[in-house]
Design a protein around this nucleic acid. Sequence first.
DNA 1: TTTTTTCTGTTGCAAAAGCAACAAATTATG
DNA 2: CATAATTTGTTGCTTTTGCAACAGAAAAAA
Lengths: 210, 210
Amino acid sequence: MNFNFNINQFIADFTTNCSRKNIKTFSKGEVVTSYIQKRQQFCILLDGSANLIRYDLNGNRIIVDHFSKNDIFGEVFYNITTNNELFVEAKQKSSVLFFNYNNIYSKCKNNCKFHATLASSFDELILDKITDLNMRIELLSKRSIREKLLSYFNLLSTKKLNKSFTIPFSLTDLADYLCVDRSAMMREMKLLKEEGFLKKTGNRITLLQQ
Amino acid sequence: MNFNFNINQFIADFTTNCSRKNIKTFSKGEVVTSYIQKRQQFCILLDGSANLIRYDLNGNRIIVDHFSKNDIFGEVFYNITTNNELFVEAKQKSSVLFFNYNNIYSKCKNNCKFHATLASSFDELILDKITDLNMRIELLSKRSIREKLLSYFNLLSTKKLNKSFTIPFSLTDLADYLCVDRSAMMREMKLLKEEGFLKKTGNRITLLQQ
DNA sequence: TTTTTTCTGTTGCAAAAGCAACAAATTATG
DNA sequence: CATAATTTGTTGCTTTTGCAACAGAAAAAA
């Protein structure tokens, strides 16, 4: 397994050489793609940010996943089993590369370098995805809103190597990402501030103590 | 990608030919393995059943995953980031095959057929794992105990192609798997019975209506 | 087979979370 | 820039969930 995988190089190879790629841009609020059974599309977010969204039967919106630059998504990473409608919504002006994974081994016209890279790097891509999914499960396994908030904030803090960081989406979205009621989440956040766990200005958080 | 992957054939090849494998048996309650950072072990449950367990800081036990015959687990499928101790516990007499994935490409003495199979089938294995993880996320994203129970039961029902099925572990375990309080879960289950959603004898459930 | 341990089922009470509703602030859009 | 739309922050009230505790059933161990 190649542990020296470089996502930037990978994307560069892809965008410059592959004739089977397809790049589109989207503005805020637009649906980038819906997940369709049997199709095996895979997408790379070249720029911007987007959410993977599902609505449950009670009308609750769930932000299943959040994507930012260089994140990879699509049916390849989500075998759809039930009739749960899943779609990706751009949160801002975004640029997305599409690739049909079904025939991954069919070379494109100019026999591009990318296909060799893809074959050898695909394990790496999915193992990264597994890491993300396990972190998501760890987050959702937390039993209280307080624990969910603190876990998520610690995650962001670790990722940024900084006690201060910006929540990558609105607080309304955050509630749908943590799968809790927004007003209850706001109340809990207020308590966390009052009890000295964190400081908050807008959607910038600074973790204090512990 | 090979969509004709056969897990039974795969395991048969592995157990009969590979000299790098290592098979051990465990009795109920024994720890099969703990997940260790940097190691890249991967294990196949040949027989029995086991749970992947974590304890959170409040002492709550979380059943992160449940494994039965032919399920695959190990650090390969769980990049450990934090200091969360994860271990696999046998729920009954179980037989487990261990393989060190670090040097997947180093052939074993008799250059066994398995390694060719593994290289070509690994994508399949991890994509299956991703499906499982996404289902787990969908389950945990449910906001009430009632919804979690019904979703989980529907899942089992779909898997068995039958409205009747057996919960693969104790109700105490089920609560830890759904990440809710056991007594609250029992109460909700009682209500579901009373409201005619299901019948229950021991840990055998029959779904009624809808 | 008896004893010990674990699991199931239940309940009262306390704490947490959800719901609804609204005003103020902020952000998009014509 | 003005207006519309969305987001934030807040609160009272209701519902759900968690906690603690215990008795009986079932399963495991001696």
